[in-house]
């Protein structure tokens, strides 16, 4: 245990400050987890969603270990095979292992979805906080913009941006960044609306008044003190948004407006599967099931979290 000894001039008074040790930190993390687990346990829906998500993330993280096949390199000895012990989900028309493609496609898709939702939160939360905290004209101005954006049909924005990306021949990571930007931007007004609402309910509570009295800076109060109390509606909405983001990305690449082929992609693979799914239906079945599983996991988890965090719903 580290002990800092601060002595004053005479060396008579001792002020002891204990810095947290690794052990303490571990303990608090464990407490937080067991607390979270107790909460989760209250809702079967949330538990089911959490288990599905956890297994999904483990499988995606360990994709290279789980499947030894290259998702991109064609194998001319294994065209269009049905599922077997060798190829769990079968192979596509270039002899590529479908299971490997589903895994690698999932890694990309889920990371893009997370990045997009994160970007939306980064854009939306400060706007919502500032609007809610300062009120008045600031609030009115920010919320007009938010209302306008909320009414803007999101899918059209995606189509425009993705078309632009295609015309500028943005490929690889740049193309993904455009997707992240479009999805995140479309989510930001919702994030702003939610965080503003949460700030409005919190800002008149006593602990905030107390902070004002002790002379804390506005920004410090808004983000460090009110902030943590506004997390729950944002977490619920973000979870549901993750599922939605995955549906949108898959739909765009299904239309051939997302990632160009050889890159494994659930939507893109489904689209190319349409040409020969009569000979091997598995090429069309498995990537679709992967999308359903992932989106369902996020939806279940989000629904369950809503039940836990919103006591009004639990009564039902």
């Amino acid at each position: 245990m580290t002990t800092l000894n601060a002595r004053n001039g005479e060396g008579e008074e001792r002020l002891e400050i204990q810095a947290p040790t690794i052990g303490d930190w571990f303990k608090s993390v464990r407490m937080w987890f067991s607390g979270a687990f107790d909460e989760l346990y209250k809702s079967k829906t949330a538990m089911a969603g959490a288990c599905m998500l956890l297994s999904l993330i483990i499988v995606l993280v360990f994709a290279p270990v789980i499947s030894g096949y290259d998702p991109v390199k064609p194998d001319y000895n294994a065209f269009i095979q049905e599922p077997s012990a060798e190829h769990l989900f079968g192979t596509d028309r270039f002899g590529r292992d479908i299971f490997a493609r589903v895994l690698w496609g999932g890694r990309r898709l889920v990371s893009i979805a997370f990045a997009a939702v994160f970007f939306g939160l980064i854009l939306g939360i400060p706007a919502g906080f500032i609007a809610g905290y300062y009120g008045g004209y600031t609030d009115a101005m920010i919320m007009r913009v938010v209302d306008g954006l909320l009414a803007f049909p999101g899918i059209l924005l995606y189509l425009l941006l993705v078309t632009l990306a295609r015309e500028w021949h943005l490929e690889g990571i740049l193309n993904d960044l455009i997707l992240i930007f479009a999805l995140g931007f479309a989510f930001s007004p919702e994030a702003a609306r939610l965080s503003r609402g949460a700030v409005l309910t919190e800002k008149h509570k006593e602990y905030v008044e107390a902070s004002h009295t002790t002379g804390e800076a506005d920004l410090y109060i808004a983000f460090r003190q009110i902030g943590p109390n506004c997390v729950s509606p944002l977490i619920v909405e973000s979870t549901v948004r993750l599922g939605y983001a995955i549906l949108i990305i898959a739909a765009l690449s299904f239309l051939g407006l997302g990632t160009p082929p050889p890159t494994p992609d659930w939507g893109g693979d489904l689209s190319s599967a349409r040409d020969y799914m009569e000979t091997n239906p598995y090429v069309a079945i498995f990537p679709g099931l992967a999308i359903c599983y992932t989106v369902l996991a996020f939806n279940l988890f989000g629904d369950g979290l809503r039940d836990i965090l919103d006591p009004r719903v639990v009564e039902r």
Binding site: M277, P281, N299
Partner: peptide, 21 residues
């Protein structure tokens, strides 16, 4: 809940596969 998790284009493809092909 399963219904809102199924992408519509996949549902469409599966319908085509079953009822048309």
């Amino acid at each position: 809940l399963i219904g809102i998790s199924i992408p519509e284009f996949w549902f469409a493809i599966m319908c085509v596969l079953l009822f048309s092909l």
